[in-house]
């Protein structure tokens, strides 16, 4: 361990829940101690935890991160306005990024599909993929800048209401043996987790289990993806900097439903764009473990490879 909690990412829990198996397999988890659950990604539905408690066959302490932050917003409208202003800036930035990205992705896709003398096409293809990576990297850097500016202006940690909430949260999680973070709306979940400071509060010797947007929020970058949405081009995009407690991985919940994994060029482009991070398909029943320095997965866990294959994980 590198001073980081053990982290487990799971596939979606609605149809094939495997969270109980995960909890039982974790060493040092006291089966009698309550499980802490964050489901802020489901917004006003956050308190609906019956399904989760059925999955774990036990009781859960809902940290109600969504509602607690809503309360802070209500009590301090200026704070809410500042967060909203940052949100608006990030969304404006996202629109500029999308425009640039669309052209770069078109070029990369055309070159990935191009046939001909490899000596001629190969370097062009590499340059096209690098151009996409450069746009992603620039965008990520700009997101970091906006967050840094915000934190300088209005550090969460010094905000009185946030501080009080964090103190309360510290007491709330003291007896919990494991933290579960469910999916939902990834931007809202990320925002609430940031304000709550939960990841800094959570004892590092206790594990975290996350799925869906929960897994995405814990990584370094939040990557949105869907290859055939009913509207829009379906270009995967970097949305945000994540909380960064899980490194070297891009989790892809419902990958088989959301992506054209049989399209080798698409798989290649995705894997190359976000490499060297492992782009891991988190479909129903999937599980991948992070011990603070390396990832390990069950044999059937699949990863998008630069070769265009979707094959067993070798992270």
């Amino acid at each position: 361990m590198n001073g980081q909690p053990k982290i487990v990412f799971l596939g979606p829990q609605r149809r094939t829940p495997n969270v109980l198996d995960a909890l039982r397999s974790l060493p040092g988890v006291d089966a009698r101690a309550p499980v802490a659950i964050v489901s802020a990604g489901w917004e006003e539905r956050e308190r609906e935890q019956e399904e989760f408690e059925q999955h774990i066959r036990g009781r859960a302490i809902n940290l109600e991160v969504y509602h607690r932050v809503e309360e802070i917003y209500t009590r301090d409208p200026a704070f809410r306005a500042a967060v909203r202003d940052r949100h608006d800036r990030l969304r404006a930035l996202q629109r500029f990024y999308r425009d640039r990205l669309a052209y770069a992705l078109d070029g990369a896709r055309q070159l990935l599909a191009a046939e001909g003398d490899e000596d001629l096409v190969g370097p062009e293809r590499e340059a096209a993929i690098e151009a996409v990576r450069a746009i992603d990297a620039h965008h990520f850097h700009r997101i970091q800048q906006i967050h840094a500016e915000f934190q300088q202006r209005l550090p969460y940690g010094r905000h009185q209401l946030v501080q009080a909430y964090r103190d309360q949260l510290r007491r709330q999680v003291a007896d919990c043996s494991v933290l579960c973070i469910a999916g939902g709306h990834v931007a809202i979940l990320l925002n609430r987790l940031r304000i709550s400071g939960l990841l800094a509060i959570w004892p590092q010797d206790r594990p975290i289990v996350a799925w869906g947007a929960g897994a995405m929020a814990l990584c370094e970058r939040v990557v949105l993806f869907h290859d055939s949405p009913p509207q829009g081009p379906g270009n995967a995009e970097v949305l945000e900097m994540g909380l960064g407690v899980a490194e070297g991985i891009v989790p892809l919940p419902h990958a088989t439903e959301r992506m054209h994994l049989d399209d080798a060029n698409r798989v290649t482009l995705f894997a190359r764009r976000f490499g060297p991070a492992a782009c891991v398909a988190l479909d129903d029943g999937a599980r991948v473990d992070w011990d603070g320095s390396t990832w390990s997965g069950a044999p059937q866990l699949r990863q998008l490879r630069a070769t265009g294959e979707v094959a067993e994980v070798t992270v």
Partner: peptide, 9 residues
């Protein structure tokens, strides 16, 4: 439009 792009179950 639904929240498909932003919601990951």
């Amino acid at each position: 439009p639904g929240p498909l792009w932003m919601v990951y179950e």
